[in-house]
Design a protein around this nucleic acid. Structure first.
Lengths: 168, 168
DNA sequence: GGCTATCAGTTTGTGTGCAAACTATTTGCA
DNA sequence: TGCAAATAGTTTGCACACAAACTGATAGCC
């Protein structure tokens, strides 16, 4: 956080910009930081996740853990592979994360008797109960962002297009 | 990568959904994973950064390091504080990252003689030369995403609105 | 039946991110 | 002047995120 304004006084003198190229073949702003969509995406993602932090902290979970809980609240025994597909997260990321959720008492982890390779990740009573508190989160975020449902919907569709395009 | 499809066979039987609430006060989809903007943002951010990976890897830098280079290509001696403001990244994140960029030979780190607290992060000759390769990155990404400049522009404006709203 | 390829998770190593504690300067003010 | 508060970076601890190597279990296939 502590978002500081975009422009600051130059650190030293040296105001001359790097220009070692022929200058004719040089689209000057192709590399401009403030028009990189990847940069805007990264900052927006981190900024929004930061909004969740104070709301999730009293629940004792992080934002990635919150996403896992959202998935489990929709369907409760899920394998690591299924969670990996739903959240588009690496199994190597989920594995320790799920252990932390288990340590927090929100899920259980046990092997599927029908396929000992698979792990059945299941909500505990506490995990299910946590949903009550979670219901207050999205409204709080939407109020904080102060954007209309239309705006958020349009953004969501844009993001979905990007995700689909980047997928394969 | 290895983005797997959204739906997979249910792990076990247990198809019955958790429904322990009065059901009247229950907006069923408020917590639906696939309509959380925060989730779409996180996935889109990770997905797009993943597109950069194979392009940046031959340059020997990561995506956050690439963003630092973009900032330095616009203005070369920059302090950690200035970089922190421009990239909206914690100094505690930048500090080791800049040491890695220095170890890669792309920047130098030395104290500002006029204020020994400040660190002057400056491009090396190699760091400046890297810009030539970087010029090929944005077109490659845009082609990969297969989105029009209009679409990307609209997305960028939406993201900028979100960033501003989330800012504090 | 037994062997091999595949599959599901886990582990390891590296690199972010962020909060909090810490160090070294510099500023500002009594 | 002298010293407390503010400032700029660094360090530490924890939690992702991902690639690659590894382990155990299952599925095919002869």
């Amino acid at each position: 956080m502590t978002v500081t304004p975009r422009t600051g006084a130059a650190m030293s003198s040296a105001p001359k910009e790097a220009a070692a190229e022929p200058a004719a073949t040089e689209p000057e702003d192709l590399l401009a930081l403030d028009r990189q969509v990847c940069f805007a995406l990264a900052v927006a993602s981190r900024s929004v996740i930061a909004l969740y932090r104070p709301l999730l902290e009293p629940m004792g979970i992080t934002h990635p853990q919150y996403l896992v809980m959202l998935a489990l609240w929709e369907q409760s025994p899920l394998s690591v592979k299924q969670l990996s597909g739903l959240l588009q997260l690496d199994p190597g990321t989920l594995s320790p994360l799920l252990k932390r959720l288990e340590a927090s008492g929100y899920v259980t982890r046990r092997r599927d008797p029908r396929d000992e390779r698979a792990l059945a990740v299941e909500l505990t009573k506490e995990g299910l109960a946590l949903r009550e508190q979670a219901l207050r989160v999205p409204p709080a975020i939407m109020e904080r962002l102060d954007m209309t449902a239309d705006e958020l919907g349009a953004l969501h569709r844009s993001l979905t297009r990007v995700i689909a395009a980047a997928a394969p």
